[in-house]
C-alpha cells in the first residue's frame, strides 16, 4: 500500500492533499492562518529548490515574491476582480515572464555573482516601492478578501476555505514539479551543477536549462506571493527586502534539494518555530529562532529531505541510486 502511494506521484499528491485537508478541519483557526502561510511560502521554497538543484542560490527571490503579491493586490484593487484563482495565476505568470527575461541575463553568472545580482534586483524593486506613495509606500496597501469562482465566504469560513484552496494549489504544483524534476529537462538541471561541459556535449544548452528553471522558480515565487497577499490581506515592500529573501534561502537549506514534501515541511517547521517562540519568549524569540537555525545547519546540513532519503536507503540497501 505504501509502495503503491510512493511509486505513483498523482496518488501521492492526492493522499497528501487529503491528509492536509483532514488535518485542516481539525486545526483551530489561528493555526490555519500559519498553515496557509506555510504552504504558500512553501511554493517559493520549491522554486528555490529548483535553483538549488542546479547549484544556484538566489538571494533575491523576494523580488518575485513581492512582485507576485503586488500584481495580485493591485490588479484586484484596480479591477475589482477578487477571484483567488485568477489573481494568483496572474501573479505566477507575470513573475514567470519577468523571470524568463531576467534569466537570459542572469544565466551568464554563477555562484555568488548570480546570488548577488538577484539581491540587487530585489532591492531595486524594494527601493522603487518605498517611493511609490500611490501604492502606499512603506506602509503598503490592503487587499479585499478573495472570492472563489464567484463564491464569497463569510468571515467564519474564510480561513478554512483559503486553506483548502492553498492545499489544492500546493498539491497540484507539487505534483507538476515532481513530474518535471524526473523529466529529461528536470534531470538536466542536476547536470548543470555537476558538469556543464558534459551537458553541452549531450546537445543541451546549459543556458536554456538555467533560464527555464529560473523562470519556473520566479513563477512559483510569484504564485506564493499572490497567495500570501490574499491570506494576509495587506502587502508591503518588505516582501522584496533582503531579509525576506534570506528567510527563503534558509528554509531552502532546511529543506534540502531532494524532496518536494521537505520544501513544504521546512517552511511549516520554520513558521511554527517562529510563532511558538514569539508566544513564549516575546523578548527573546529571535534568539530561539537563531538557535534553531544554528542547530539545524549543524546537524542537518543536507536538510530535512535528506532524513527521509537516508532512512529509505537503510531500509532497502539494494535500492538503486534513483534519479541520477
Amino acid at each position: 500500500m505504501i509502495h503503491a502511494v510512493t511509486s505513483s506521484p498523482p496518488l501521492a499528491a492526492l493522499v497528501c492533499a487529503a491528509a492536509l485537508m483532514a488535518v485542516g478541519l481539525m486545526l483551530p483557526d489561528w493555526v490555519l492562518f500559519t498553515a496557509s502561510l506555510a504552504l504558500a511560502k512553501g511554493l517559493v521554497v520549491l522554486g528555490l529548490v529548483l535553483l538549488l538543484r542546479m547549484g544556484a542560490v538566489s538571494f533575491g527571490q523576494g523580488m518575485y515574491y513581492c512582485l507576485g503579491a503586488y500584481i495580485c493586490g493591485l490588479v484586484g484593487n484596480a479591477t475589482g476582480v477578487q477571484d483567488a484563482l485568477f489573481l494568483v495565476i496572474l501573479s505566477g505568470l507575470g513573475c514567470c515572464a519577468l523571470g524568463a527575461v531576467l534569466g537570459v541575463f542572469l544565466s551568464a553568472y554563477r555562484g555568488v555573482f548570480f546570488a548577488m545580482f538577484n539581491l540587487a534586483l530585489s532591492m531595486i524593486l524594494y527601493g522603487a516601492l518605498l517611493k511609490a506613495t500611490s501604492v502606499g509606500g512603506s506602509d503598503g496597501i490592503g487587499i479585499a478578501p478573495p472570492s472563489y469562482f464567484g463564491l464569497s465566504p463569510s468571515d467564519e469560513y474564510r480561513s478554512i476555505l483559503f486553506y483548502a484552496f492553498v492545499v489544492v494549489i500546493a498539491a497540484g504544483v507539487g505534483l507538476a514539479t515532481r513530474i518535471y524534476m524526473r523529466s529529461e529537462l528536470g534531470l538536466a538541471a542536476l547536470a548543470v551543477r555537476d558538469n556543464e561541459i558534459r551537458l553541452e556535449y549531450l546537445g543541451l544548452s546549459v543556458r536554456r536549462v538555467i533560464v527555464f528553471n529560473y523562470a519556473i522558480a520566479a513563477g512559483l515565487a510569484g504564485l506564493g506571493g499572490g497567495l500570501v497577499a490574499l491570506v494576509s490581506g495587506h502587502i508591503i515592500p518588505e516582501f522584496a527586502y533582503w531579509t525576506t529573501s534570506g528567510e527563503f534561502v534558509f528554509m531552502t537549506v532546511l529543506s534540502g534539494p531532494s524532496s518536494i514534501v521537505a520544501a513544504f515541511g521546512a517552511t511549516a517547521l520554520f513558521e511554527t518555530v517562529r510563532l511558538v517562540a514569539g508566544q513564549y519568549l516575546p523578548n527573546a524569540w529571535q534568539l530561539m529562532l537563531g538557535a534553531f537555525l544554528l542547530l539545524s545547519i549543524l546537524f542537518l546540513p543536507n536538510g530535512i529531505g535528506a532524513l527521509a532519503a537516508g532512512r529509505r536507503r537503510t531500509r532497502a540497501p539494494d535500492a538503486k541510486e534513483d534519479a541520477r
Binding site: 499528491a13 524526473r182 534539494p257 532519503a309
Partner: peptide
C-alpha cells in the same frame, strides 16, 4: 515519496544524523 534523491555528500555519521 516525492523525492528526487541526490547522493548525500555530507560526511555525517549516523550518530550525528540521529542527534539532529
Amino acid at each position: 515519496m516525492f523525492d528526487t534523491t541526490i547522493k548525500n555528500r555530507g560526511a555525517m555519521t549516523g550518530r550525528f544524523k540521529k542527534t539532529g
